[in-house]
Amino acid sequence: MNLWFVLFKKECLEMVRNFKVIWVPLTFLFLGAIDPLTAYYMPKIVDALGGLPEGTVIEIPLPSPGESLLMSVGQFDTLGVLIIALMLMGTVAGERKSGVAEMVLVKPVPVGFYISAKWAAALILVWLSYFAGMLASWYYTGILFGWIPFGEFLACFFIYGLWLTFVMTMTIFYSSLLKSPGLAGFLSIATAVVLGFVSSGFSHWIKWSPALLKTYAGEYLLKSALPDATVPALLVTAGAIIALLIFSSAVFRKKELAG
């Protein structure tokens, strides 16, 4: 366990040294706050510019608090996923490509430790950033459109957060599988997108799909009741995360690092 912490500490130190620990949370914070703000000001800006012909009536309704928070979730679902995939795509593949993985794994280090330490450090960074973003969105929404009960906010936060964790784990998986960071990043994003399409297209049949967690978080926020399929979806996602993590180690262990 001591050895695991050595690896984990290295990952944390690296995130500090390359500023990930600052820029990722700040970016999420910005993404979270920007949508409530623009939603609030868009009608006023259009008004103030007044470039529209006389008599044009544009009704841009103000969103409800729930809708406002969901707009931010939408940001995390696109730009957030993109940032997570791009930022983590090289975590294993890059080290293998450069050869430094060879330097580490020729020491008596279990491959499972090596991968899981990276995963844990990424997990902390992703949840920290995502929390900063969601909190900002919740706060801005509260001030501009009305307050969402904190408990409901938290439930929404955790449900959708599990999807982000899934995406993050998938990126680490592809990164362990492939030697090219770019390809790992591309495949993670592509898989997330395809999974999203397929799941919403066939949502009657695959209610438990991880990609539907966003939908369920939204439904919960708007209707204040958890859809029936939420729990199965959460369980499937958690299972998939664990499986991906085990696969990552297994796949990586089989690889010949040299050559």
Binding site: K10, E14, R17, S98, G99, V100, V106
Partner: peptide, 11 residues
């Protein structure tokens, strides 16, 4: 073990 071209964490 010393590889032919040792690589490190540059940071």
């Amino acid at each position: 073990y010393l590889p032919q071209h040792p690589v490190f964490y540059e940071w």
